[in-house]
Each structure stands twice: as structure tokens, then as C-alpha cells.
Design a binder for these strands. Structure first.
Lengths: 246, 246
DNA sequence: GTGGATGCTCAAAGGAGGCTCAGCATGGCC
DNA sequence: GGCCATGCTGAGCCTCCTTTGAGCATCCAC
């Protein structure tokens, strides 16, 4: 019954309905492309910069709503780029990309100001989720529909509190399980292939085989499908799909 | 009753109604032709390239809406071709053709950005379906998401969820049954020969006999024609046809 | 009506795909 | 350090799908 949902996935947009504008700054073209394509797939308007100089130029001309910024840049330091971007008076929120070990204290300090960071290698699902979080909290971009909850039938996932409930029952998930479930729930009634899931939920440098997806699907089923009628469906030879129970 | 459908099959077009433009890149002429012919039959505007260089040239001049790209090319690597195509600022979605075993290493990360891949040998029905899926999801080509449902009478097939319903009854199909039914439903009231069906639904290197088509027609009938008046008709000596009951 | 061609369906073999278990590695926490 | 939670792998099992062969049914030509 609880299935009179909106036409389709409620994409995040600016108040006037135009696409969110994102600036991606990374000196590694393949990574910049990867992130760029993922965000375009979200329906966002994306521009990429390979250097700090380019980033500043795009920042002035493109006026992004959000910036993905690699700390390590050949010419300018990422933090210096941020300083100059902000010098123009733009309070655009920033998501930093950092190496795992060099999580700068300075970066940590910035998260207090509303910015955020992700360590490499990251999963696209995590990156996009954090960007969505930044946008949602941004006073500048405030879109009317800033609901952090994703619903599929009686299953509710909260992106901010990381809580998952089916009906009245709280479900405890690990980080990976959570990301997998979120990806499924953001694409309800759509079959997602194991390759898609692997590319999206696991880090881009993950070398393992796709059977890991089967295993985590199995974990989710044990925690979610046991609480009621099955919601996670296998489409043999194609992939997996989550849908409300009719 | 529910059969007041549009003039004919709702072909996918660009927003202005002009045909979708596809670029097919494969160094094997016979395969390039096979795919090219199939897409032309879809009503698309097709150009083929046998080398990476040709592909780049066509990419610039022809400005395709979608690209079918073999990973293995004699001159340039398929991924390099993609990189250069995209360097021009064109975010054209790409469907990769890969050998069955060379998938994992190189195509990683591509499906996350909205691109897709198909392993050789593929069935044309699957290839075309995936291309349609890419086009449908592409914000560039189609302004609003096209309808993933195909309807013939009270029979409805959803290409995204892989669900099939006749009236209110859900029908469970296997992957092969689904592809066969989709091919029939995309050509309603048109007799399709067993040879056509075999060429279209089974892989192009399939060695088996054409009686396999009869068997799968039989399966479909058991699952679909038993739910109401028969919709799948045999035209002896010619082939099979699906049509609404009227 | 008869015979041959065409189409239909049953049952079973074989295989691919999916699931799960046991176990190891890692990293955080007490 | 020792413990526990989490992530991941490999192997084996099991289910279900695909394909084949064979036999029967139906249709058409003569």
C-alpha cells in the first residue's frame, strides 16, 4: 500500500530547478573523468579542472554550487585554491580528496566549517552521498526537497543518521552493507548488474571478483528480507533489484 | 480493451524528432555491419569506423548521440578513443564490446558513470536493448526519461525492472524468454521468421538448430497465453507474431 | 485418405550462475 | 597485547536454465 511514490527518483536540483553545478579538480585525468561522469549521471552540470589555475578560472566563470578538490595539485596547493576561491566571496562548499595517510590537520579543521573530505581510494557511492549531504546542508543551494530519508515500501534509510528501519524494526548495518543498500534504494524497481554495483559501491581500485556482491546481497537479505516479505530480488543472469512488496 | 495504442511502435528519437545518431566502431567489418544494420533497422542514423582514428574523426564531424566501441582496436586502444572523444567536451554515452574474459581489468569503473558494456558474443536484441537503455537514461539526448514499458494489449513488459505483467498477473520469465518476448512485443502484429528470431535473440555465433525457437515460444505460451485469450500466433511456414486480442 | 513436412511438447542431461560456509586478514578498541 | 567487528576469498553445493532428442500432433499437398 505504502507505494504511492513520486514519479521517479527525486533528483537534487537548485531552487529554480536547474541542475546542480559541480567543479571537479584533480590532476589525474582518469580520476577526474570518473568523478565527472558519475556526477553527470546524477544529472548535474559538471566542469573539470586539472590544475589549480584552471580551478580558479572555472570557479570565477562557472560559479559552481559545490567543488570536489584534490589536495595534491601540481601547481597550487588545494588549500590555497580554496582560499582564493573563497576570497571572491563565494562560500561554495568543498569536498576534499586526500590520500589515506596524509589527512592533513588543516583539512580536518575545515570540516568544522561545513566542508568535508574523502580519502582515496573512495567508492563513488560514498563520494556522491557526501556531496549530496553538503548540498543538502548548504544554505546557498537549499533545494526544497532536502529530505535525508530514502523510502522503498516500509524500508527507510536515513543518509544523515545512518539508520535503517523496516517498519518499526531498527536494522544494524555495516558501512559496506549500508552503501550497497543505499545504492539499491536509490534505484528502486531497476535491475542493477553486479558490474554496476561493484563499480559504484566498492573503491575504484578494488581488484576482487564480483562474487563479493553476491555475498553482501546475502548479508542484506538476512537482515532485511527476514523482517517481512522479500524485497531484494535476483534477476538471474542480469543482476539485483529492490522493490516494495506490491 | 486497453488497446488504444499509438500509431505504431514508439521509436526513440532526439528531442526534435530527428533520428538518434550512432557511431559503431569495430575493426571486424562483418561485425560492424551486423550491428550497423540492426541499428539502421531501429530507424537510427548510423556511421561505422574500422579504426580508432576514423572513430575520432567521425566523432568530431558526425557528433553521435551514442557510441558502440570495441575495446580491441588495431591502432588505438578503445579506452584511449573514449578519452579523446570526451576530451572534446562531448559526454556521449558509450557501450563497450569486450571479449568475455578481458572484462574485469579494463572496463572497471565505466558502468558507474552511466556507460555500459556487452561481452562477445552478444545477441543483437541485448545490444540494442542496452543502447536504448543508455539513450533513455542520457540527459543529453532525451529531455525527459523515456518510458521503459512496452505494451501490447494487456501485456506489459518493463525493460528496467525486467517485470512482465498480463493484466494484474505478474509473469516470471527467464532471461532468454524475456528477450524473445521483448523482440516480439517490439514488433507487434508483424510476423517474425524463426531465422529472424534466432539471429536476433540468440548470440550471433549460436550453432544450435532453429527448433530452439519453437521451444521457447512454447514456454512463453504456457506462461502468457494461459492467462487469457492467445496473443502469440503461429503463421505456418512463415513464423510467429504477437498481437493484442482486440 | 495418405504421406511428408512442419510445429509442439515432454523429459532429461549438462552446465552456468548464484548462494553459503568456513576461515583468514585487517584494523579499531579496551 | 588480546579481542571483536568487518571485509574478503575459495571451494563446494545447489538450483535453475538451456539445449537436445524423441515422439506426437497438426496441417497441407497430392
Amino acid at each position: 500500500m505504502a507505494d504511492d511514490e513520486l514519479p521517479d527518483s527525486p533528483r537534487l536540483t537548485r531552487p529554480d530547478g536547474s541542475p546542480v553545478r559541480a567543479l571537479v579538480v584533480d590532476d589525474e585525468p582518469s580520476l577526474a573523468d570518473l568523478v565527472s561522469m558519475a556526477l553527470k549521471y546524477e544529472g548535474w552540470d559538471v566542469r573539470t579542472a586539472l590544475t589549480g589555475q584552471q580551478a580558479l578560472q572555472h570557479g570565477r566563470e562557472f560559479k559552481p554550487d559545490i567543488v570536489v578538490l584534490d589536495i595534491m595539485l601540481p601547481d597550487l596547493d588545494g588549500l590555497e585554491v580554496l582560499r582564493r576561491l573563497r576570497a571572491d566571496g563565494t562560500d561554495v562548499p568543498v569536498l576534499f580528496l586526500t590520500a589515506k595517510d596524509s589527512v592533513d590537520d588543516r583539512v580536518v579543521g575545515l570540516t568544522a566549517g561545513g566542508d568535508d573530505y574523502v580519502t582515496k581510494p573512495f567508492s563513488l557511492e560514498e563520494l556522491v552521498a557526501r556531496l549530496r549531504g553538503l548540498i543538502r546542508r548548504s544554505t546557498l543551494v537549499v533545494s526544497e526537497r532536502a529530505d535525508p530519508e530514502i523510502r522503498v515500501g516500509d524500508l527507510v534509510l536515513n543518509e544523515e543518521s545512518y539508520e535503517v528501519r523496516r517498519g518499526d524494526t531498527e536494522v544494524e548495518l555495516t558501512a559496506t552493507e549500508f552503501e550497497l543498500l543505499r545504492y539499491l534504494m536509490r534505484n528502486p524497481k531497476r535491475v542493477l548488474s553486479k558490474a554496476q554495483i561493484l563499480d559504484r559501491v566498492w573503491s575504484y581500485d578494488f581488484g576482487g571478483r564480483s562474487s563479493i556482491v553476491e555475498i553482501y546481497i546475502s548479508y542484506l537479505r538476512k537482515k532485511i528480507d527476514t523482517l517481512g516479505p522479500a524485497m531484494i530480488h535476483t534477476v538471474r543472469g542480469v543482476g539485483y533489484m529492490i522493490k516494495p512488496v506490491t
